[in-house]
């Protein structure tokens, strides 16, 4: 009798441990990573370095907010990197018209590409992977052609301040990232749009029957992705004080990695904004830490790959 009871207790403990892992594994993992880095590098915990990390993750973080919506809806947006470069270029090309116009033009160009993606996905009934892969190539081509392959320098002082100035001790672009992630969280978990995003990712047929306007929601999702990519492009361009036509390469994969580490399922229906935030931070801390420790560049890639796999494994424990 006693033995049976003991066993029961043990089983319950086990279950609650895996429960705990799936719920908080990401945060625990982040804390462990953070502590390990702090021990290994004496400069890791300095204010300058922590702000550096936040500044370095801002661009990927903003893209990842859009990507979170796409992935939860069981879609994906591969064109974000290309759109980022395009929007940066648009901003630099219109900088003569004043900062506000240049900023709006850049954001609008991202919104436009996102909207086009959404239209092809919904009205054309083509899978998001294929549509955004095609638009990635297309936008890249247009950007290269318009720029002639050369980077173009940003000279508008107001726009330059966006990437280099501080609000108190915090860089402006970190503030922008913080606002974006908070708005993203509200949008995803507190509004109908967010709820419908989960619904579509869980079951499109049930969503249709429940009266959800699927096409409209999807178009909005990809437009949001485009807008976030454009905002990231604006920030990157002002940080680098130039727009390079190839600046966006690889950002789509970084964003997908961050969202996946954050616990979202590429099959749709699952994911959280807080998860994405930690996914972005984990990638940022690893990259920062490995450079601080001057780890050999080949080994860096190996370590990054392993950490992504481990993070996703922990997140998928159910």
């Amino acid at each position: 009798m006693n033995v049976v009871k003991m066993n029961n207790v043990e089983i319950q403990k086990k279950i609650s441990f895996t429960d705990f892992l799936s719920k908080y594994g990401l945060i625990v993992g982040f804390i462990i990573l953070f502590v390990v880095m702090a021990f290994l590098s004496p400069v890791f915990l300095t204010k300058v370095n922590l702000i550096n990390i936040l500044r370095q993750v801002a661009v990927n973080g903003i893209i990842s907010v859009g990507m979170t919506f796409a992935i939860i809806s069981a879609g994906i947006d591969l064109s974000v990197g290309a759109v980022l470069a395009f929007s940066g270029l648009i901003m630099v090309m219109t900088q003569g018209q004043g900062a506000v116009v240049a900023l709006l033009a850049a954001l609008l160009s991202g919104v436009l590409w996102g909207f086009v993606n959404g239209m092809f996905i919904t009205k054309g009934k083509v899978q998001p992977f294929v549509v955004t892969m095609a638009s990635m190539t297309l936008v890249q081509g247009v950007t290269l052609m318009v720029s002639g392959g050369h980077p173009i320098t940003l000279k508008n002082p107001t726009l330059l301040r966006l990437g280099s100035d501080y609000l108190g001790p915090i860089p402006i672009l970190v503030v922008v990232f913080a606002i974006v992630i908070i708005l993203g969280w509200v949008l995803l978990s507190k509004t109908s749009f967010g709820r419908y995003t989960y619904a579509i990712g869980t079951s499109e047929s049930a969503s249709k029957l429940a009266g959800i306007k699927i096409d409209r929601i999807k178009i909005l999702i990809y437009t949001l992705c485009g807008a976030m990519a454009a905002l990231a492009g604006v920030i990157l361009t002002s940080r680098l004080s130039s727009a390079s036509p190839i600046a966006g390469a690889g950002y789509e994969l970084d964003a997908i990695a961050a969202v996946a580490i954050g616990g979202a399922s590429l099959a749709g229906g699952e994911g959280k904004m807080v998860g994405t935030l930690f996914g972005v931070l984990i990638v940022g801390v690893i990259t920062n830490g490995l450079v601080l420790l001057d780890v050999n560049v080949y080994i860096q890639q190996i370590i990054k790959g392993i950490i992504i796999l481990v993070a996703v494994l922990i997140g998928n424990r159910k």
């Binding site: 370095n49 940080r239 680098l240 130039s242 990259t287 450079v291 420790l293 001057d294 560049v297």
Partner: peptide
């Protein structure tokens, strides 16, 4: 030579340099 890192874009080089400066 006190640090040897790699970067494949201007943005990445900037981040890498920031981290090298910290260390």
């Amino acid at each position: 030579v006190v640090a040897r890192q790699s970067a494949t874009s201007r943005a990445e080089a900037m981040s890498v340099m920031e981290n090298i400066l910290t260390a």
